[in-house]
Structure formats: structure tokens, C-alpha cells
């Protein structure tokens, strides 16, 4: 056994002394370096011609990732630009006040709470991006990355490697957005202020801006609150200054998740994904009518379902007796 190992070691020694292999090793190192520093690869590709294709291939996935990120960021930047222009494409007066929203976001630096027009399928993507997505920080970061991305995007111009599909695609979108921002095919995002949630003492949670959120969704606060209580399996009350006091400890993101579900179920139109809907009650049934496309659908009533007993049984008995 030991003899075998020794033999192997010797062969390895030999390999290391082999000049061609040495060269190979150094090549690898170079490649690694190029991977790390993204700005270099173009130059490097030019100076070492034979290594170019491999380099390009290795660089590609990175580029793709970069672009994907960039795309998302770009969208955001774009959105904000639209906000600043005050030119939200939606002509309906009922659309939410984006400017106001942004101000609030910047001030509080809180989570961006946005409901998607496409409930379920987009929710996954949303989860990947959200919820710790400080918007203010994202803005300048997005600008930086897009400026940096610009030279890597047209990276094939200087080098002799071929352009890739994704590069061309992002280029088309970039040009399209530059020339006519309103045509970019960006869906209007339906946004809502993040719920401001804080702890009240040890066992209660205060949800301060319920009234505001309900107003933005055009829903009765009672309905929203009923849903919240049913989903969270608790109870609570509204205090003097229109804040909701919920029994139990809840974090902002938990409340946010529940609100998101509420929006998917009771606010957005299933047909056209518009959030512009009204909820009406006709003999015990709730109907959701879309203002944008006129479709009507019935929505299930809120049911709290089974509630397990969590408190002390003695207290329960006293309550029942009283």
C-alpha cells in the first residue's frame, strides 16, 4: 500500500515539473482572476487569443446573472423616474398616490409593500426579492450597477467573441426604454404603504395604519380587520386613534403576508388583475366587481374556522358563566 502511494507521489512530482502542465496551471489562474474581476475579460481575451472562447464561455453565466439583476433594478429605477415625472401611465384618478408612497418609503426606510396584479405565480418571485428590500438604498445602487453594466453589456463590441442572446435582448430593452419610457411594457405596479406594526406591551401588537391601507384598497376596515383576525387566529380592537390592537405578537412581515393574501383574494380582479375593484354584499354573498373590466365574481365569506382553546380553562369557565 505505502509503495503505491509513494509511486503516486512521485508521478505527481513529475507532473509538476512538466513545463507544459505548469503552463496549464498558470492559465487556470488567469482564468480565475478574470472571473473575479469582471471588467478585465475583454482585454484579456484580446491578448490571449486562443483562450478567448473558453473565457467567453466562462464569463457568460456571470454576465447573465449580472444582467438579470440589472434588469430588475432597471425596472425599479424606471418606476421611480416615472414617479418623479408624476406621469404614471394610469389615467384613472383612483390609482394610488405613488409620490406620496415614495416619500413615506424614503422617510421610514421600511419594507416596500406591494401587491402584485398576478397573485400566485408572481408571488414566488416576490418572495425572492422581498421583503427586506430597502428601496432608498436600492435606487443609487441600481444607478451604479446600470452604469457599470453598460460597458459589460456591449462587451462583445471590443472583443472578437460573439454576442449572446441575452445581451442582445437586454440591449433592445435598454434602447426601447430610453427612447420611449411609456412603451416599455412595464406593468403598472399596485403598491401600498407598508403596514406600520409595533408592539404594545408584551402581548399585544398595534397596527397603526389600518385605516390608511383600507382606504387605499377601497375596502371597509371592518372587512379587512375581520380577515386579519380570522387568519391570525386572534382577536383585538380598534383604539381611540383608529389603530388596530391585535392580541398576540406579530411582526410587520407577518401582517404584510396576511394583507398580501387579502389583496389577492379580495382586491385584485382575477380576470384582468386590476386592483380597481369594489366589494358589494348581496344577500349574504360578497361580490367583487372590477371597475376596469366590469367582471364580477363572488368571493367567499371570511370564516375563522376552528379555534383551539389556548387560554386557561378556568378563565374560560368564568367567562361562560358570566
Amino acid at each position: 500500500m505505502s509503495a503505491e502511494i509513494e509511486e503516486k507521489l512521485q508521478s505527481m512530482d513529475l507532473q509538476e515539473e512538466d513545463p507544459s502542465l505548469m503552463f496549464d496551471l498558470s492559465m487556470k489562474k488567469k482564468k480565475k482572476k478574470s472571473k473575479k474581476t469582471e471588467e478585465e475579460p475583454v482585454e484579456e481575451a484580446q491578448e490571449s487569443q486562443d483562450a478567448a472562447p473558453a473565457d467567453a464561455a466562462e464569463e457568460d453565466p456571470m454576465a447573465m446573472f449580472g444582467e438579470k439583476k440589472k434588469k430588475k433594478k432597471k425596472v425599479k429605477v424606471e418606476d421611480d423616474a416615472a414617479v418623479e415625472g408624476g406621469e404614471e401611465a394610469a389615467a384613472d384618478g383612483e390609482s394610488f398616490d405613488f409620490g406620496d408612497m415614495k416619500k413615506k418609503k424614503k422617510k421610514s426606510k421600511k419594507v416596500d409593500f406591494s401587491a402584485f396584479e398576478d397573485g400566485q405565480d408572481q408571488e414566488g418571485e416576490d418572495g425572492a426579492r422581498d421583503p427586506d428590500d430597502p428601496f432608498a438604498a436600492d435606487d443609487d445602487e441600481g444607478a451604479r450597477s446600470s452604469s457599470k453594466g453598460a460597458d459589460s453589456e456591449e462587451g462583445w463590441i471590443g472583443s472578437n467573441r460573439d454576442y449572446t442572446y441575452t445581451e442582445l435582448l437586454s440591449r433592445v430593452f435598454k434602447i426601447l426604454r430610453q427612447n420611449n419610457p411609456e412603451l416599455a411594457g412595464e406593468k403598472k405596479r399596485y403598491t401600498i404603504v407598508p403596514p406600520s406594526v409595533m408592539r404594545d406591551g408584551n402581548k399585544k401588537t398595534v397596527f397603526a395604519n389600518v385605516a390608511d391601507i383600507c382606504k387605499r384598497m377601497h375596502r371597509q376596515p371592518e372587512h379587512v380587520i375581520q380577515f386579519l383576525f380570522a387568519e391570525l387566529g386572534t382577536s383585538g380592537s380598534i383604539d381611540g386613534s383608529q389603530r388596530l390592537v391585535i392580541k398576540g405578537r406579530f411582526q410587520q412581515k407577518q401582517i404584510e403576508a396576511v394583507l398580501r393574501r387579502y389583496i389577492v383574494e379580495y382586491v385584485t380582479c382575477k380576470t384582468c388583475k386590476s386592483p380597481d375593484t369594489i366589494l358589494t354584499k348581496e344577500n349574504r354573498l360578497f361580490f367583487l366587481q372590477c371597475e376596469a373590466c366590469g367582471s364580477t365574481r363572488s368571493v367567499s365569506a371570511i370564516k375563522s374556522g376552528f379555534q383551539a382553546q389556548t387560554g386557561k380553562r378556568a378563565a374560560q369557565r368564568v367567562k361562560a358563566a358570566a
Binding site: S300, G305, A308
Partner: peptide
């Protein structure tokens, strides 16, 4: 009262309830 008709369209509901402290309870209905 449609509460017991078909048990809410045959859905299985999995709920969570908070107990004291950080303890919770899961109910499957």
C-alpha cells in the same frame, strides 16, 4: 347559515394559533 354546508367547499384548512410566549398550535380542519 352556510357554515356547515360542505365544510367550506371541501378545503383542508391548516391554521396556526399563538399560545403563550413563542409557542404556537397548528390545527388541521
Amino acid at each position: 347559515d352556510s357554515k356547515d354546508t360542505g365544510d367550506q367547499q371541501g378545503y383542508i384548512h391548516i391554521r396556526i394559533q399563538q399560545r403563550n410566549g413563542r409557542k404556537t398550535l397548528t390545527t388541521i380542519q
